[in-house]
Each structure stands twice: as structure tokens, then as C-alpha cells.
Design a protein around this nucleic acid. Sequence first.
DNA 1: TTTTATTTGTCCGTATGTATC
DNA 2: GGATACATACGGACAAATAAA
Lengths: 251, 251
Amino acid sequence: MTRRTAAAKRAETKAAAGVALWRRIADDLEQSIAQGTFKAGTKLPAETEIAERFGVNRHTVRRAIAALAERGFVRAERGSGTYVEADRIAYPIRRRTRFSEIVGGAGHAVGGRLVASSIENANGDIARRLKLKSGARVIRMERVRQADGIPIVASTSWLPADRFPNAARVYAMSSNSMTRMLANFGVRDFTRESTRVTAAVAEAADAESLKLALGRPLLVVESVDADTDCVPILTTRSRFASDRVALVLET
Amino acid sequence: MTRRTAAAKRAETKAAAGVALWRRIADDLEQSIAQGTFKAGTKLPAETEIAERFGVNRHTVRRAIAALAERGFVRAERGSGTYVEADRIAYPIRRRTRFSEIVGGAGHAVGGRLVASSIENANGDIARRLKLKSGARVIRMERVRQADGIPIVASTSWLPADRFPNAARVYAMSSNSMTRMLANFGVRDFTRESTRVTAAVAEAADAESLKLALGRPLLVVESVDADTDCVPILTTRSRFASDRVALVLET
DNA sequence: TTTTATTTGTCCGTATGTATC
DNA sequence: GGATACATACGGACAAATAAA
């Protein structure tokens, strides 16, 4: 009885301060993460322990943690603990957008591999983006690219087969770099023509190649790149692991 | 036995043509949707029926439909059917980004409402974005905005309380328009300072206000807007229903 | 391999302050 | 003022997943 009254009083004074208790706790935990008290990849103390530390009920802590999880700061795993998520890599979208420059420039080891490739007929969508006739021959390349060994993005690219014969083979001989591959075909530079962003949840294939749990959010970027004469040479559908990347738009 | 051999043969000849059977079917269905043979909101024929029409096994059709679902063209509902999704509204991100101009300009009826508002102390993140001291008083506004009555985006905005006292009340008296509300405070124009895009899956609160199923993908846009003197006046965290919107970046 | 302890997830309930009609 | 709904906070119990013994 006395304890409950005390708790009610405390709730009252906090509410009088204008901010709910769980929100204050969420802010406090967020600050601890930002300041490095809780480092990325490590476990947060157990809910019961945090509750004891703040002198509140476990449910109040749960509400705070849920708020942080929703914003991507932590990830709760049943039976194991609540983990601090790594900072998302900032991925600027510019006219010249190169994965290796962005990720390498941020101090990460850049990796990648060609998963598959094939030659096929462009469907309406691909043909329109590349300004080809529907049914024109295009080369499709499936790639996964990594930062520090962690998969960041799975992408499917299409190129006109006429202009870039054996693109996949040349790509493999250009140290898995699209920029160098295109240079081997005489493309000195290329820039972003259009970019369209949506979101999706990871299905089996992308979850597997990105090493993500099913249902995790993906950023889907559909882009068209063109050469210096503004002729489209490459269209790509990239699926970024949203847990690991944030797109930064430059206006 | 003989049937399987025939099926294997057929698969083989199609593979020899360069494209997997399910991919050809997916392209065909996609074209039917694009041409309006299957209209938005209607059901696709049953998988068995499609399978019969193409003369393939139902599993091949399932693979094709899964590919379309992953790209957001259709949405399969167990026990009900596979529905054609409406075209996503193209939402350009520019220096001057206004929901009503974009959505209204695209020919949709613009709607919106203020769900909640409060005054609170800025945490580190909000304070940094608005260039305030940590703990400064800010006004938080929760809004949901709609196109043709369909919720498109749920957003949380923060404004400095010093400069915009009673912002929420003024907002309500400015026909629920942020632009007009700011104009009432003497802000003639404002432009986008920074934009950061991630993805998330809908939790209970956003699912409810956006009328989405739990676990559907969201585009999360964190933005800062500044007045003509480049003083930050507004930071917003918007959750777009990704099924209904695509961000278009202008480079 | 089995058991045990730890940790999160979910459900039941009670009480109180606040906002709205 | 009253009735009602809602958000907040607390307490307890158990299930489910994981990790360690």
C-alpha cells in the first residue's frame, strides 16, 4: 500500500514535469548509447536490471526500449538480450554515386562479388529506363557489396548487351568494379539520371544474400545512370539492408 | 513420369531461350498490370487458373507472383486472393518540398489532421538538428496526411517553442497547413536543409494511423527545414506507407 | 544430450491522472 | 459536475527462446 502510493506520487511529479517516465528513460538510454556508455554490438543490461537502476517497474523500461527499437537504436532478442545496433553508414546520393568511394571514404573495407549474370530480353520497364526497344538484349548482373565484410546492398543491374558484350566477364576481370568495367568499354564517366526510393521487407533471397532475418526492412533504390552524352547505360535495382545504411540526400 | 519429362523438356527449351519460365510469366503479368488488363484493387485470377492459362505448374506461377509481390505490384492474401496494388504516388524530394503541392499537383484530394501535440524538452538529437541547447523547450506535433482519404504519411515534427509559441493551436487555425502556420509567425519561406532516409517495419502505432498491416514496410525520412536566413525552424520524422509512395530524388 | 538459469514476450490485473464530451 | 475513454505506471505470472552448466 505505502509503496504504491509512493509510486503514484513519483508518477505525478514526473508527469508534472511534462514528460512521461518511459520517455525520460528512453532519452537517458539513447544518450548513453550516443556517448558510448553502451557500445554498438554489446548487450544492454537486462530489463529487470535497468528497472532497478531507474527505480521503476520493468514494464516502464520495456516501453522505453520499444521506443528505441522502433527508431533502430537497439534490437531485442528473446531469450538473449537487447543489443545496441551499429551506426548506420551514411550513403549520400549524388549525381556521381559510387559505392566504393562512399564506403571506402568512410573508412570501411570495401568488398563485393558477382553472384550471377545472364543475358535476356528487356521487359517494358527495363527497356524504357535504358531507352531501348522492348525485347532488346540486355545483360543482367546480380551483385552483393559489403563493408568490412558485412553485406550492405544486393543489387540487380541491367546493361544494353549491344554496347557492353560480355559485360559480366569483363566485370570479373575489372576487380569487381562497375566503374572500371565501364572504363574498359570506353565509358570515361557516368552520372545518375534518376533515382526512385521505396521500401520493402526482406524475402528469402535477399535475406539470404544480405544475411538478414526475414521481414527486416530494405531500402529499394531504382536508378538509371547515363554516360557523358546522357545516353542511359545502366539501370539498377538496389536493395539496401536498412539496418546498416541511411541514404543521405543532398539538396 | 512422362509428364515430368515433358515439363523438364519445356523448362529446358525456355532456359535455352535465356529466361526462366517463372520470369517470363512474371513479365507477362507485369505487362498486363501496366496495360490495365488487371486493374489496381482487383484480384488476379487464382494461381491454379493462371497456371492453366500458361500451361505450367501452379508452383511456377507462385514463383512469378512472389517476384511481383516483392517489387510491390501485387499483394497476396492467404485465403482471399492476390490483389493488384495501386500505383505508388511519386513524391519528389526537393529544396522546397510541400506535401499539399506534391499530392495536390498530382490530382489527389489532400487531407490531414493533427493527431497530438505537446511541449517538451529537446533531447540531444532534436536539439542538434534545430541548433538549440540540449533540453531547450520544443513543440512536438504528430500529424497524419492523406491523399484521396488514404493515409500516406505519419509524421512527428519539432519546432523551437521560443520562436513558435502555441504552434499547434496556430496550426489548427491555419487550415492544418504547416506552411500557413509558419507564415503566421512571419516565416515567408522555408527550404529543406538535410534529408536522411531509412526503412522500418510498421509497429502498432504507425500501422494504426496509416491503416497498414503490422510488419508492412515504411520509408522513414528525417528532415530539417530552415528559413531564408538558414536558421533551422523545423525538424520532422516522417513515416511513409511505402506501399503507397515512392520517393523520387532530383539530382 | 539434458537440465537449469537467464532474458525477453505476452497476458492478466489494479490504480491514477488527464482529456473530452 | 459527471461519464467516459485513454495514457501512464505498477505488480504478478507464465510462456518461449536462448545460453550456459
